[in-house]
Nucleic acid binder design. Structure first.
Lengths: 225, 225
DNA sequence: AGCAAGAAACAGGCATGATTGTTTTTTCCG
DNA sequence: CGGAAAAAACAATCATGCCTGTTTCTTGCT
């Protein structure tokens, strides 16, 4: 799916008709179908990879004709874009759930985020992120979402660890380290570059390091600034 | 390039004619052309991504007609396979250079490997590794190379750090951690998931942790076993 | 309320463009 | 001259965007 001819001022083929507060039968069905197509797209990207995901495949996966799909989405690029946005929100929701689940210590937060990062959504997102490297249209969509995720991730995390407030630089480092190790592991396991048996020990190592960086636990290392 | 119709018993269109020790002019030119095509393939994968790399593109990049190229390689899959093997050897050579450059301490080794991992060869390799996730033909070629690299990597590294011999488990962990962090960083920088300003601090963090794991520097943590 | 006009959802088909493997033709060197 | 290297031509496949036709739902008018 090239995602090439994404017209700039493309308005959706179907207007949501949020006006009149009238939630008609059709508007409901339309939103439902759109959601079905988006989910099918994500499934296809996970199964076949972004490069091998075609519009007929998505339509088949969604249980729709290709013509019907393109009635809702104008073209293939719009489908991809919608899937990216959905994946971004999925990622945010997943992290939010991990936070709300009540995990005040770094150990459980690491475990939880590790579980989240192994979900299909992460696979799909990384497929798209790598494709965006050589696809300017994808990159234009993805880049703002990447920074948005970073910001929200840090904003959420800082609430969990008020002890770190005295050392924002160190905190950001700790967050980056966690993301790097966890995502790096996920990708290495995915691509067969790392044995699965190494996962648990690695999680332990990461936790050790994070704890060692925590100013509340090691005040000596972080003199008052 | 689908790499789909890779016939099992496919013999090369041009036999390398290593026999007879007769290095004819043509055999030389043939090998030279093959090498040019392989390098062009790697360049294309870096520039356009594996998914968007087509046989006409490779031929153009190599300064050849497509017909001439397929005279040397039978089909597109053979080109990809040759490029993968070349990339594997490149990776091994790069790491070997880092070792031979004489870097007895972990700090310089980390710095050196970080530099190696930012080369185009790594980008191309990761493109192929991710594509292999959903491409069985690619996976069949790549998987053995992945384990081969892991083994050689560890075998080389252990020579550099004889102090670790007392703790092979910890050593393997340290190696895995280094690879995970460095490759994770490389990918995150590549995909815009991480700011480049975080690289140096992260390298420092990794070095800290590796040193803390070193039994020679922290004998207390590793009682004689 | 009832009916007709309009719009939306859906399905299928068509023409274009691109890529691939194969085959045929030309060029060049021993 | 003969064979390998290089180039060009060829046919088949496939994904895409667009267009047409059919069914279902909404809306408005009498």
């Amino acid at each position: 799916m090239p995602l090439a001819a994404m017209k700039p001022g493309a308005k959706p083929a179907v207007r949501p008709r949020a006006e009149t507060a009238g939630v008609t039968h059709q508007s409901l069905k339309s939103a439902q179908t759109r959601a079905r197509v988006i989910e099918a797209t994500i499934r296809c990207i996970v199964k076949y990879g972004y490069a091998n995901t075609t519009t007929p495949q998505i339509a088949a996966e969604a249980g729709l004709s290709r013509g019907a799909m393109l009635h809702h989405f104008e073209n293939g690029a719009a489908v991809t874009k919608a899937a990216i946005v959905e994946l971004h929100e999925k990622r945010l929701r997943a992290f939010r759930r991990a936070v709300d689940a009540g995990a005040p210590d770094s150990t459980t937060l690491i475990q939880t985020y590790w579980r989240q990062i192994q979900r299909p959504a992460f696979v799909a997102f990384h497929e798209l992120a790598l494709a965006a490297r050589t696809n300017p249209d994808l990159a234009r969509i993805l880049q703002p979402l990447q920074v948005d995720f970073r910001e929200r991730f840090n904003a959420q995390a800082v609430l969990l660890f008020p002890q770190w407030q005295s050392d924002p630089v160190g905190f950001k480092l700790a967050m980056t380290l966690s993301q790097t190790v966890l995502e790096g592991m996920a990708i290495n396991v995915l691509t067969g570059a790392m044995e699965e048996t190494m996962v648990e020990p690695m999680l332990g190592l990461l936790d050790e390091k994070i704890r060692a960086m925590n100013p509340a636990l090691n005040p000596a290392l972080h003199p008052a600034q």
